[in-house]
């Protein structure tokens, strides 16, 4: 991987009940993620995806780009922006920002319908010797 290279796109469509499964797996049962009526009552269009679920997709795309070994992902920092929704495809894209001493930094974004849900994501990968 060298500067300017892109990583393979990751596309995933979380189904209607994904936020429930992620809530159980992560322990985050905030009703804005799992209860559409509650979410609307507090001014959201519907229940929204957990931001950390989106971050997990960014992590997955970067681990895959590094060959699939989870040990290769050394650092990941993200900013949460627009809201993500179930039943809409998420697309994660990344570009190599710098490459040095067997480590690369990948600029990554996750978007849904052209709306960035995670931006300014930076992943640091350690590549094989």
């Amino acid at each position: 991987m060298k500067q300017g290279d892109t990583i393979p796109e990751l596309r995933v469509t979380p189904d209607k009940y994904l936020p429930h499964r992620y809530a159980g797996a992560s322990g985050d049962f905030n009703p804005i993620h799992i209860d559409a009526e509650f979410a609307k009552a507090v001014g959201l269009p519907s229940n929204i995806l957990h931001g950390l679920y989106g971050m997990a997709q960014v992590a997955r795309a970067n681990v895959a780009a590094a060959g699939g070994d989870p040990r290769r992902l050394k650092r990941l920092s993200v900013q949460f922006r627009g809201m993500g929704f179930p039943e809409k495809e998420i697309v994660v894209r990344g570009t190599v920002k710098e490459e040095r001493d067997g480590r690369v930094v990948i600029d990554t974004v996750a978007e849904q319908d052209g709306n960035e849900i995670i931006r300014n994501a930076e992943a640091e990968l350690e590549l094989e010797g």
Binding site: M55, P70, L73, K74, R75, S77, Q79
Partner: peptide, 13 residues
């Protein structure tokens, strides 16, 4: 409150 940003740095698996 909003969760604005998150970073992890990983060492031992």
């Amino acid at each position: 409150m909003l969760h604005g940003a998150q970073e992890f740095v990983w060492s031992e698996p």
